[in-house]
């Protein structure tokens, strides 16, 4: 059974790290979480990204956040990657497996997974 004492211990451990982490994240992963995204399966995509970011030790480099409707409902679940000094990358029709691959190949190793991206001519 999880206790509040355990949460207290987590707090003690994280306290200093959190102060260090604030404002240093260069990379932002955004998941569309409006009705369209949620209905298409955005919840497991978001949770897979959160898991993968931590499994790969990227939590100090990456912020994972949620947004409303991106405007391309038919391509949901949509994941956008914003990196300082680079063009935005938009991944479409995502699932948990694809999300994991994006974190490993793109976020960790810097190689955009072109199989899942959308470009103007494809629309």
């Amino acid at each position: 059974m999880k206790t509040l004492a355990e949460l207290q211990a987590i707090k003690e451990k994280m306290k200093d790290k959190v102060i260090l982490r604030e404002g240093v994240n260069q990379l932002r992963i955004v998941v569309g979480m409006a009705t369209c995204g949620i209905a298409a399966g955005a919840r497991p995509v978001l949770n897979a990204i959160v898991e993968a970011v931590n499994e790969n030790g990227l939590q100090d480099k990456v912020t994972v956040s949620q947004t409303g409707c991106i405007g391309l409902c038919q391509y949901e679940p949509i994941v956008e990657v914003f990196e300082a000094g680079k063009d935005k990358v938009t991944y479409v029709k995502m699932d948990a497996e694809k999300a994991k691959r994006v974190v490993e190949e793109h976020i960790k190793n810097g190689k955009v997974v072109v199989d899942y991206t959308i470009s103007l001519d494809k629309q």
Partner: peptide, 18 residues
């Protein structure tokens, strides 16, 4: 939980898992 965490964000991975 916020009371216990004293400023550590609720969406810290370890906290979310807890």
């Amino acid at each position: 939980l916020r009371e216990v965490l004293e400023g550590v964000p609720l969406n810290t991975y370890e906290v979310i898992k807890w």
